[in-house]
Amino acid sequence: MNLAEITAWFTDPAQWSGADGIPNRLTEHLVYTAITLLVGLVIAIPLGAWVGHTGRLRWLVTGANALRAVPSLGLLFAVSMLVGPLIQSDLAFVIPSIVVLVLLAVPPLLSGVYAGIDSVDPAARDAARGMGMTGWQVLTRVELPCALPLALSGFRSATLQVIATATIAASVSLGGLGRYLIDGLASRDYVQMVCGSILVAALALVADLLLAALERYAVSPGISGRSARVARSRSSRTGAASRPAPGDPARSISPAGTST
């Protein structure tokens, strides 16, 4: 296997059409990822916001993080064996895969939301309550906006983990980019396996770059610290421009005739 074989695989027109083509497999992978993240957000945002706001049941966050230690492939087979016989359709493969991916996506999402709210300056909460805000208003207008950087960081982590782990769904007859790995391993087509790995890595990289851009423009400059950095940069440039260089005629002259 060499670069020429990998290039030939990607440039083969057969790889860009049909049910086994890259566009269709990529679409399937994105659909699984989107469904998983949507379900994970529905679970993690309310739960993380409640735990962070009230300070109760913090052990839920620790317990959720413990799920990361569970082997993904073993969990997938276990759930498939339990759920599969109960469903007489293709959903027998889809539901177990989504359940496992959601279990992996919830911990970083939950931790990000909880940590972001828990790290809010208590003085900001006291000021909001002093203005007459209710608990709900404090949560939605103060805590959640301040928690956005850490929440988005958790979302980025969850997205990358789901994109990478969704490849194992092909082991239970599901689609997605993982088909290139599973089918390539079954037929000993190592070029197909390498190209599938490249596609998964490229998808994860593009997703991370897009989410990094979203994080940059969605978070308020005052919260992210960009406004302070810009102000310091402008101040330093202005100060450097206003100080005359040594030997500059613009330097002030003291009444005694000596330069200052």
Rank of each mutant, 00 (worst) to 15 (best):
G225A: 04
A66N: 04
R251M: 14
F155T: 00
R188H: 06
R156Q: 10
V172F: 09
I168D: 03
V206G: 10
G112Y: 04
P221C: 02
R232P: 00
R56A: 14
A92W: 01
L86Q: 15
V94A: 10
S224P: 03
S187A: 11
V99K: 01
S119E: 14
Y114E: 10
G257Q: 05
A228S: 08
T258I: 13
A78H: 01
A147I: 04
T159M: 12
T54D: 09
I22L: 15
A128E: 04
P107I: 07
D118V: 12
A245Y: 08
A170Q: 10
P122L: 14
R232D: 10
R216L: 11
G74Y: 06
V39D: 01
L199G: 12
P249H: 08
I117S: 02
R58M: 14
G176R: 05
W16E: 13
A250D: 11
T165A: 15
A241D: 04
V31G: 02
A151V: 03
L148C: 00
L26F: 15
V100E: 04
W9H: 12
A115I: 01
G176W: 09
T54G: 09
S254T: 11
G63D: 05
R179I: 15
S157T: 11
R156L: 02
L38S: 13
T62L: 11
I45G: 02
N65E: 11
W9N: 04
V138I: 08
W50A: 13
V83K: 03
P85A: 09
G247V: 11
R188Q: 05
S227M: 04
L73K: 00
L30Y: 08
T36K: 02
D208Q: 13
P13V: 14
G130Y: 09
G21V: 13
V106L: 01
P244K: 01
A64D: 09
A207N: 06
T33F: 11
V120M: 10
V142Q: 05
R129N: 07
R243K: 06
V206I: 15
R188Y: 14
R226A: 13
V200M: 12
R58E: 15
P246Q: 04
L139K: 03
F155L: 08
T258Q: 13
L30G: 12
S153V: 06
I253Q: 08
L91W: 14
N2S: 15
A64Q: 05
G239A: 15
P145C: 01
A66I: 08
P145W: 06
D12M: 08
A213L: 10
G132A: 02
A115H: 03
F10H: 12
Q137W: 07
A169C: 06
V206K: 06
V194F: 13
S119Q: 12
G257D: 10
V42C: 12
A8I: 07
E5V: 04
R188K: 00
N24S: 15
V83T: 02
L160T: 12
A241C: 01
V94Q: 03
L181T: 05
A127H: 07
L174E: 05
Y217C: 00
A256N: 11
P71N: 05
S235Y: 12
T33M: 13
S224L: 07
C195R: 03
R251L: 15
